[in-house]
């Protein structure tokens, strides 16, 4: 399975690139027919280049990146940490477990006005939006993983009179890590969406802010350029997430479990 994966990789890349090229050509033609509504790729690229040279794009990227990273980091710490605690405590699971499942289905966009009212629209409030977007997949995957720790291994720990902390170190955390990593991979995607929700609905800063002001000005070249940039970043992040997921379970390599 692994071999065929590495064999087909160059081809997959070539196919993806061909698709991208086709899309760009179609876009260029469409843009030439209606330049107001749909700027051409060339003009979009020029718009991006202009924002790079006047420093607005790097500053916006930094803003957005910081928001994304802080929110995601908080979601990872909170999701994995609380997930592990939840898996060991029946009381907490009974009292807050259902809340977690109920809360995860609430669209964060709907909560944006509430968060705005409660926490204002500073960095903290925006981070909260990113955190809330990303935390649930991480939390839920972690709980599922930790709760299914193999019974035999828990018995092995008991036979060796393991204390609670060594039990976490030797059994629960290593067993849960791959599950948490799949949660984090999903969390990265959600945090990305959350970052833009925060920038659109709380305070127009960063890339989201640039997008908003450009579309208010009907500057379709900038809007489209930024959109493409954002998609590329998203694709790269997803690739990174998958890499991470694999890297964290070397013992799983080749095993079917």
């Amino acid at each position: 399975m692994k071999r065929s994966g590495s064999d087909s990789r160059p081809r997959a890349v070539a196919v993806a690139l061909a698709g991208l090229l086709l899309g760009l050509i179609a876009w260029q033609f469409a843009g030439q027919r209606d330049p107001v509504l749909l700027a051409t790729p060339v003009r979009s690229f020029e718009a991006l280049a202009a924002m790079v040279s006047d420093g607005t794009l790097p500053a916006a990227l930094l803003d957005t990146g910081l928001l994304f990273l802080v929110g995601l980091a908080a979601a990872i710490v909170g999701g994995v940490g609380y997930g592990l605690v939840l898996s060991r405590s029946k009381v907490l699971r009974g009292s807050t477990g259902w809340l977690v499942f109920a809360f995860q289905s609430v669209p964060i966009v709907a909560l944006a006005p509430l968060i705005l009212a409660a926490f204002g629209f500073g960095f903290g409030a925006k981070t909260l939006v990113v955190f809330l977007s990303a935390v649930f997949p991480i939390l839920i995957n972690t709980v599922e993983g930790a709760r299914h720790a193999p019974k035999t291994l828990l018995e092995v720990a008991r036979v060796h009179r393991s204390g609670e902390w060594p039990l976490w170190r030797d059994v629960l955390i290593p067993h849960t890590l791959p599950y948490a990593m799949s949660g984090i991979r999903q969390g990265i995607a959600m945090a990305f969406v959350g970052t833009f929700i925060a920038e659109f609905f709380l305070q127009a800063t960063g890339i989201g802010g640039l997008l908003l002001s450009a579309s208010a000005r009907f500057d379709s070249a900038t809007v489209l350029g930024l959109t493409v940039l954002v998609s590329v970043i998203a694709a790269l992040l997803m690739g990174l997430g998958r890499r991470l997921e694999k890297a964290f379970a070397p013992w799983r390599e080749g095993s079917t479990e």
Binding site: L153, E155, V156, H175, W251, E257
Partner: peptide, 13 residues
């Protein structure tokens, strides 16, 4: 000491 039927080894160790 105890020896388990299905070995009970930690797969990550």
């Amino acid at each position: 000491g105890m020896v388990f039927q299905h070995f009970g080894l930690f797969p990550w160790k």
